[in-house]
Amino acid sequence: MRLQGEARGWLLASPYIVSAILFFLFPLGWSLSLILFDWNLISPVRTYVGLGNFREAFTSARVFQAFFNTYKFMAIIVPAVLVLSLVLALIVHHLPRLKQFYAVGFFLPYLASGVAVSLVVRGILSYDSAFNELLRSLFGTSPRWLRDPFWATLVISAMIVWKLSGYYALIFLAGLQGIPRELYEAAALDGAGSFTQFRKITLPLLYPAFYTVLVLAIGLCFGIFTEPYVLTGGGPRFATHTWQLEIYYQAFERFRAGYGATVAVLNALATFVSILIIRRVVEAWGARRGFR
């Protein structure tokens, strides 16, 4: 018997549908069922608080700091990751050989464990590391990398940029390989130099890749957890506190599942709205310039 038409489609899609129900829809429904209660998941008493969890979250300095820090990280990470991944893609694209080898090499940081990388970074930035010894011998001092709000933010941003650039470079590389060579040849015949070709041909035609990377990078800024968890605990003074750290703290350390779920819902809303606004802005910008 051969499955035909719709049945075959449903069968092929079923692994995704089942996993989405189990690991996305069910937890989402469960979270939504918690947001109106003050409950630690085990107590026989589940106190109904109505919108009390939302009121608390909207007036919480911790939640505000997580909200603010996300945009602070975004302001550093998104431009840096866009530029670096594009540069990496251009380098790999113009390599005469071993393109795949280098592309995979740049992708490896994305696969590395966040905890392991954080521990390595902590070692590199420890007070008695060779790097800091060098800085002290040159400048007489070394920054308090993980204990100063400015440097801690920068270190965590740099780690995320390093981790993601190789992965996003693959998206740009795919875009670069899709640009017809004839366009560059025609432009060269018309007297366009390398920079003009890059500005007038490469960048506009990379718009879809740029758009994809932008949306992915913005979404990621709302999910930062491992690096600040291991390196700073969200400090100093909440400088590296994030949505995910707040959810973890409320749900798994203070055992406030209802409030943790509320913060998670707010995080989802903030992510959705932010991506929506930035998409609209970028789409309008692209449309004005005729990018598709």
């Binding site: 008695d128 990398w145 993980l146």
Partner: peptide, 14 residues
């Protein structure tokens, strides 16, 4: 008192 990290502190006599 040092509040930054050290690779090894007490064990190495630092």
């Amino acid at each position: 008192l040092i509040t930054e990290t050290l690779a090894t502190g007490f064990e190495a006599g630092k």
